[in-house]
Design a protein around this nucleic acid. Sequence first.
DNA 1: TCTTGACACATAGTATTACAAGGCTTAGAA
DNA 2: TTCTAAGCCTTGTAATACTATGTGTCAAGA
Lengths: 105, 105
Amino acid sequence: MNNESLKGHLDFLLLSVLANGAAHGYAVIESLRQQSGGHFDLPEGTIYPALHRLEAQDLLKSYWQENAPRRRRVYELTSKGQKVLAQRREEWQAFSKAVNATAGI
Amino acid sequence: MNNESLKGHLDFLLLSVLANGAAHGYAVIESLRQQSGGHFDLPEGTIYPALHRLEAQDLLKSYWQENAPRRRRVYELTSKGQKVLAQRREEWQAFSKAVNATAGI
DNA sequence: TCTTGACACATAGTATTACAAGGCTTAGAA
DNA sequence: TTCTAAGCCTTGTAATACTATGTGTCAAGA
């Protein structure tokens, strides 16, 4: 939420959300909020730069959606993004397991 | 490890380790390595500043250990530190639960 | 003896990051 | 018309873990 705990995990979350299907930035924010049970209510200044970063790393590709009531840039996973997502998933599980073990949980 | 995933969680780990008993910096590094199954092998440049930070926040107190073969600064939890640890523990559990829910784990 | 490595502490500087704060546009409701 | 939500963007900032480097002690081996 309002602390530093998200750092280093945001990319994993974004890739996870987009693994459910292509979506534009505002929808990603919505999905994050809903799927996390309201825990991740992230500002646009967090999401948009992160999406740009992931696209620059070839983990996402994007296009302007035509025939939409408002202009929307839609993002979707690349094949590289899918591989990296699988990797990030394992890293997250190893990380959380290690934290739990250290904390006696 | 070598990425940013630790950010915001290191304090929780340090408090957790010291909840098992007072220890000096080098021993904290050892405990972190062992309790995490080798996952957290953190350099001294990470640990010492973090311990100082926690002490500055009154979550730890420290003293130079006398009659030791080498000079050691021993850290232990304050009562405030214990309370904050319990709080951090809940935050971690809520956070990891939210990540898992978002990622479909 | 000399050297290597483990033990033990410390700090200055760096890169990365999430976020705050602001700005822009458009559609639909009040 | 006015307002709000949708939708995108960027600049600057604070916090953080880490790299690199320095200090010194001690034990063991070459």
